[in-house]
């Protein structure tokens, strides 16, 4: 069609456009079930909470449980470790927020905001870099320079409150939603 002037839009142009638009919206709706099926199933979501007994955990020891397929760290800190963690000013931290699911998002990463009871630190044992499990530091076998955890995968370090002190990890180890159901039991999730 060799026309010099721009033709007026016709009824046919309108029908083409309308059909195309309806088709595109329909295709998007049809695609959604195929995308959403990959998300966690209802059965997976239902298995989301556990209760653990912490009676046998010794002072200075960490015990690892399994929660939502991830390691869950429960560490009973010594008075020295608590004092060390409390002495760090928030301004020195890479990630200044608490990352505590039990507190508002904006809570600062002071040591007190990282636990309910100073002696008990409960953390998701997933390095916030790429998901490895960091290795716990003990006086017998120190890991890194901050007394907390060292991730062997790419060298991130965490302090005794599980706060990131050396990258590449961008965030503090997460504190999961949990509560003490008695003096010796905690419920996570």
């Amino acid at each position: 069609m060799a026309t010099a002037t721009k033709p007026e839009p016709t009824r046919r142009d309108f029908l083409y456009l309308a059909t195309g638009a309806v088709g595109a919206v329909g295709a998007a709706f049809a695609a959604w079930p195929f995308i959403d099926q990959m998300n966690p199933t209802s059965a997976v979501l239902a298995l989301a909470s556990i209760e653990v007994d912490i009676t046998s955990i010794q002072l200075g020891q960490q015990v690892v449980f399994k929660w939502r397929g991830h390691p869950l760290f429960v560490r009973r800190r010594t008075p020295k470790e608590i004092a060390e963690a409390r002495a760090v000013p928030v301004s020195e931290l890479i990630d200044p927020v608490a990352r505590n699911a039990n507190l508002p998002d904006s809570a600062p990463a002071t040591d007190a905001n990282r636990e309910f009871k100073p002696e008990w630190l409960v953390l998701v044992g997933v390095c916030t870099h790429l998901g490895c499990t960091p290795t716990v530091s003990t006086p017998q076998s120190p890991q890194g320079d901050y007394g907390g955890w060292l991730c062997h995968c790419h060298g991130s370090q965490y302090d005794v409150a599980g706060r990131v002190r050396k990258g590449p990890a961008p965030q503090n180890l997460a504190v999961p939603p949990y509560s003490f159901t008695s003096d010796t039991k905690i419920k996570v999730g």
């Binding site: 966690p40 939502r68 997933v126």
Partner: peptide, 29 residues
Amino acid sequence: VITSLFSALDQVIPHLGSAITSWLWGGFA
């Protein structure tokens, strides 16, 4: 480690990266 590469997107749009990783995993891990 490889699937967690996507979690870096959290630093661009909060929660986007985590949503993608849990979609890839079909679970929490």
